[in-house]
Amino acid sequence: MGPKDLINFLNKLEDNNIFYKLNKVRNDAIMVEIAVPGQRWEVEFMADGTVEIEKFIGDDNFYGGQEIEVLFRDFSD
């Protein structure tokens, strides 16, 4: 897959009103971050033409404001 495939993919997301944003976290890839209800997808278009997809699927639980402390306790350097 190449740049044309990335553009076609972005056009299809837009045609289907699916929210996304572009990001770059690797030297050899462009990431498309997609947010849909209960899920977040990271689709990376690699320089060598491969595509990698990682899905983050919610557990349908909601948490109170005290959960912010868990964020800092468990994930701070």
Score class of each variant (00 low, 15 high):
Met1Arg: 11
Pro3Arg: 14
Pro3Asp: 14
Asp5Glu: 13
Ile7Leu: 14
Asn8Arg: 12
Asn8Gly: 07
Asn8Asp: 13
Phe9Gly: 03
Asn11His: 08
Asn11Leu: 09
Asn11Ser: 12
Asn11Ile: 08
Glu14Trp: 01
Glu14Pro: 02
Asn16Ala: 06
Asn16Phe: 03
Ile18Thr: 06
Phe19Cys: 08
Phe19Trp: 10
Tyr20Pro: 02
Tyr20Glu: 02
Lys21Trp: 11
Leu22Ser: 08
Leu22Ile: 05
Asn23Gln: 04
Asn27Ala: 09
Asn27His: 03
Asn27Ile: 05
Asn27Tyr: 04
Asp28Cys: 08
Asp28Lys: 02
Asp28Glu: 02
Ala29Gly: 03
Ile30Ser: 03
Ile30His: 00
Val32Ser: 04
Val32Trp: 11
Glu33Gln: 14
Ala35Ser: 10
Ala35Pro: 00
Gly38Phe: 02
Gln39Ser: 10
Gln39Ala: 15
Gln39Met: 05
Arg40Glu: 15
Trp41Gly: 12
Glu42Arg: 12
Glu44Asn: 06
Phe45Gly: 06
Asp48Trp: 09
Asp48Lys: 11
Thr50Gly: 10
Val51Lys: 01
Val51Met: 02
Glu52Arg: 12
Glu54Ala: 13
Phe56Arg: 09
Ile57Cys: 02
Ile57Trp: 00
Ile57Thr: 11
Ile57Lys: 07
Gly58Glu: 10
Asp59His: 07
Asp59Leu: 09
Tyr63Leu: 15
Tyr63Met: 10
Tyr63Asp: 04
Gly64Val: 08
Gln66Lys: 15
Gln66Val: 14
Gln66Thr: 07
Gln66Trp: 09
Glu67Arg: 13
Glu67Tyr: 15
Glu67Cys: 04
Ile68Ala: 04
Glu69Ile: 12
Val70Trp: 09
Phe72Ser: 06
Arg73His: 04
Asp77Ile: 15
